[in-house]
Design a protein around this nucleic acid. Structure first.
Lengths: 119, 119
DNA sequence: GATACTAATTTCCTTTAGGAAACTATTAAA
DNA sequence: TTTAATAGTTTCCTAAAGGAAATTAGTATC
């Protein structure tokens, strides 16, 4: 019987798997990419503006996702001294670097749909 | 008071949101990208080879994910008439088109980690 | 004084993802 | 005949994601 050796993964490979995990944890879920995409297109936006544009999101979810994106330095949150108070969200420079990736995700998805439907 | 009008999303925008959803549903989860990445690097592989390489995956999960990837025409499944039977999995031409996207996901993740750690 | 706007938070609930362990069925080697 | 390999399936369980509705709290308009 041939004993199957499990050769340990290279350091580089482990780093790459971690990079995939990092990216996917940030982008997974129903709303995160939509929030980023909306801010990419709309620039600076308020909480209620985002809520209206992201048709159907629950305020709890929007609040949670925004906090998580802020923690990861993808967006900034600014409280304005207006009455009633308004809070402005916009992408950081780092957040804007997701643009290319999102475009690739869209392109692949469009092509995939053609591929699945055709035969 | 200003009534906020909810202008309906353009047809193009709806298509793009659907494309994001399509791609992310395929790639989300703990194992799918790892399975695709493994097959990109390893070429044709058997069930147990995949299971051993994807250190820690439960056979149920591997089986389920492979079925889903096959349904979406990203991989092919071939039963070999050996004793005991072996089943070979490999990426389709369409499945291989995920290469660029995965590379982008890795690159962004590597850069993101630098960005978060630095300050 | 009642209602509505701002931006959330809290509570409760359902659905989905995924892991652990046992089991099926066939074949071959010790 | 016991053990181990092939490729799964089945059952049971926990944790996480996410939705619905109510609540908070300050301000402003009717």
């Amino acid at each position: 019987m041939k004993i199957q050796q499990q050769e340990p993964l290279s350091k580089e490979c482990i780093q790459q798997l971690r990079a995939i995990k990092d990216t996917m944890e940030l982008l997974s879920g129903k709303w995160k990419i939509q929030i980023i995409g909306t801010l990419l297109r709309g620039g600076t936006m308020r909480f209620m503006e985002l809520k209206r544009t992201l048709n159907g999101i629950a305020p709890k979810k929007l609040s949670n996702d925004l906090q998580e994106l802020e923690l990861n330095k993808l967006i900034t949150r600014t409280v304005k001294d207006t009455k009633p108070i308004t809070v402005e969200y916009s992408l950081t420079k780092h957040g804007k670097t997701l643009d290319n990736l999102i475009v690739e995700i869209i392109d692949w998805g469009l092509n995939h749909r053609k591929e699945i439907i055709k035969e």
